[in-house]
Amino acid sequence: MKDDLLTIGGVQLRSRLIVGTGKYKDFDQTRRAIEVSGADMVTVAVRRVNIIDRNKENLLDYIDPQKYKILPNTAGCYTVDEAVRTARLAQAAGITNLVKLEVIGDQKTLFPDTAGLIEAAKILVKEGFIVLPYTNDDPIVAKKLEEIGCACVMPLAAPIGSGLGIRNPYNIQIIRETVRVPVIVDAGVGTASDAAIAMEMGCDGVLMNTGIAGAQDPIAMAEAMKYAVWAGRLAYRAGRIPKKLYANASSPIEGIIE
C-alpha cells in the first residue's frame, strides 16, 4: 500500500493510525510504543509548565517534532472560550497549526458538547487553524463540521478510555457516506479488532491512546494496532464478499468420487 497516503488538511500521513501520548509509565515507554505503532501523527495535551521542578523532562525530548506530526489537543476544555484559548496557546508554541479540537460536555462521559464544538471550530478555522474535531457519532454534526471547513471529522467509537469498541457502527457508516473529508474514529477502541472494523467500514484512520497505553503490554498492543489498521484498510480496499445466509461450496462439485 505504498501510495495509500492519508491526507488531512494538506498533511500527508503514511500511517492511518494516530496515537496519543498519555497514560504511559514513562517517556521511554511512550517513545517505544509510538515507534512500534508506526504512527506518523501523535496527539499531545497543552498544560502549564512545571515551574517548581526545574529539571523535569519534556515529552518532546522523546517525541521528535521533526519526525512526528504533533497534534495538540484541547482536552479538558468544557467551554468554547477555554478550547479556543488552549488552541491559540498550542499554536503559539510554534511547532504546528494543527489542533485536535475537543469541547467536552460532561465529566462522566467526556462526550463532546457538539454545539460548543461547532462554535469553536468556526472561530479556529477562520483563524487559519487546521481543525480536527473530536465529535459524537452524529452524521448531522459531522456534516456541519465539514461545511465549516474542518480538515476531517473524528467521531468517537465509544467514550474516551472505555475500550467498548464501535457502539454505533451504523452511524459511523452514515458519517462515512455523508462527508467527503477523512473520517477518523477517535476514542473507545479497546483491542485490535475494533480498529480493524473501523477501517473495514471505510474509515480513513483510527486515533487511540488508552487502547495501547492501558494494555498490559503497551508495546505489544501498539504493534497489534498497527497491523489491525493495515489489515482493516487492506480488506476495505480489497472489497469484501457479500454476506449470504446459506453455504456456497468452495470445492468443485464435479469429480467427486462415487
Binding site: T43, L89, T210
Partner: peptide, 10 residues
C-alpha cells in the same frame, strides 16, 4: 502569566 508546554495526552 500562563506558561504552557506539551505533555502526554490523547
Amino acid at each position: 502569566l500562563e506558561i504552557i508546554n506539551f505533555v502526554g495526552g490523547g
